[in-house]
Simulated scan of single mutants.
Amino acid sequence: MEIKTPEQIAKMRAAGLVVAAMHRECRAAAVPGATTKDLDEVAAKVLAEHGAKPNFLGYGGFPGNICTSVNDVVVHGIPNRETELRSGDLLSIDAGAIVDGWHGDAAITVFVGEGHAPELYELSRVTEESMWAGAAAVRKGNRLVDISKAVEGYVRRQPRPSTGKYGIIEDYGGHGIGSEMHMDPHLLNYVDRRRGRGPKLVPGTCLAIEPMLSLGTPKTHTLADEWTVKTNDGTWSSHWEHTVALTEQGPLVLTASDGGKARLAEYGITVAPDPLA
C-alpha cells in the first residue's frame, strides 16, 4: 500500500478540488435534453481551466473524460451523443483528475429533471450515507475491513425498499489511490471474512471509498463495448465516491470542497487541516 507524504497529499488535495469543480459543473449541466457527451465536454473544459489532466481518458482505452452511468448502468458508462438525458433519469457521474502526477477520484448520483420515484431518492441517500459511514472509519489503528464493515452495516440497517432489498454490488469497490488511479488495496463494500482484516490504516493512507447499490441484485454484467456495467435484473443503481486521506491530524476528504468537515462532524470527527487553505 502506497503511503503518502504530507506534500503528496497536498497535491492530491489539489486534484480533488478539480474533481469537485467537475462535479459542480456537470451536475448543473445534467438537464433533460443534454447528452452524456455534453457533460463530458463540460468536464474537459473544467480540467483545462485548472491545468489538470483527466485520469479516465485513455485509461485501458476508455474514450471519455468522465463515466456517465444512467439508470440500470452501475459504472463505466461511456459518454456519447446518442444517450440523451430525460426527466426522471438517475445519473452517476464518476470523475477524476491528475495534478502534478497525483490523482483524485469521486462519483455523485444526480437526479435529472423531475418525476423520480421516492425509492430512488432513498436509494441515493442510502448509498451516499454508507460512503460517509465508511469515511468515518478512516482512523488510525483501524483496518481496511472496518471501512467495509461500516459501509455494509449502514446499508443493512436501513428499511428495505419495495423491491425487497438493496444489492451491494459485488464485482466493484473502492481502492487505493495516489500516484495511480487504481492501486492496492481493493476495498470491498461488504465484509468477506475469507479476505481477513486487511492492512492497518496509518497516516499517509489514501483510499477511494465508493459504494454502489442497486434496488435488487448485487450481480452485474458488462456489455459488448467492454466498459458499460449493468445490473443483471435491470434494477436501477446509485454510485457515490470520495477520495479520503488519513493524516497525523485525522482524515481529510480530498474530493469534498470542505474537506468533509460538515459530514464527518456528524460522526464527532474533526477533519485534518486543509494543506491548501
Rank of each mutant, 00 (worst) to 15 (best):
R156S: 00
R156E: 04
Q158H: 10
P159R: 09
P159S: 03
P159N: 05
P159W: 04
R160S: 09
R160A: 13
P161A: 07
P161G: 05
P161H: 02
S162W: 00
T163L: 03
T163S: 15
G164T: 12
K165F: 01
Y166R: 10
G167I: 04
G167K: 11
I169F: 02
D171P: 03
G173V: 07
G173S: 10
G173L: 11
G173I: 07
G174R: 04
H175G: 02
G176H: 03
G176V: 05
G176M: 06
I177E: 00
S179I: 12
E180V: 13
E180M: 15
M181Q: 13
M181K: 14
H182G: 00
H182P: 00
H182C: 11
D184I: 14
P185W: 07
H186R: 14
H186Y: 15
H186T: 15
L187G: 02
L187R: 03
L188Y: 10
L188N: 11
L188P: 00
N189K: 04
Y190C: 09
Y190M: 14
V191K: 09
V191R: 06
D192G: 12
D192S: 14
R193E: 13
R194H: 12
R194G: 14
R195A: 13
R195Q: 13
R195M: 14
R195K: 15
G196H: 12
G196K: 13
G196D: 08
R197D: 12
G198E: 04
K200H: 05
K200W: 10
L201A: 04
V202S: 06
V202Y: 03
P203Q: 07
P203S: 08
P203C: 11
G204C: 09
T205G: 05
L207C: 10
L207A: 08
L207K: 04
L207N: 03
A208V: 15
A208K: 10
A208G: 10
I209P: 02
P211D: 01
M212P: 02
M212D: 00
S214P: 04
S214N: 08
L215Y: 03
G216W: 04
T217D: 02
P218K: 12
K219S: 05
K219H: 12
K219T: 03
K219R: 15
T220C: 04
L223Q: 13
L223W: 06
L223P: 01
A224M: 08
A224D: 14
D225S: 11
D225H: 08
W227G: 03
W227A: 08
T228C: 09
T228L: 07
V229M: 13
K230H: 02
K230W: 01
T231H: 02
T231W: 05
D233G: 02
G234A: 11
G234T: 07
T235R: 12
T235V: 03
T235Q: 13
W236M: 12
S238E: 04
H239I: 00
H239L: 11
H239Q: 04
H242D: 06
A245D: 02
L246V: 02
T247I: 06
E248Q: 08
E248N: 09
E248F: 08
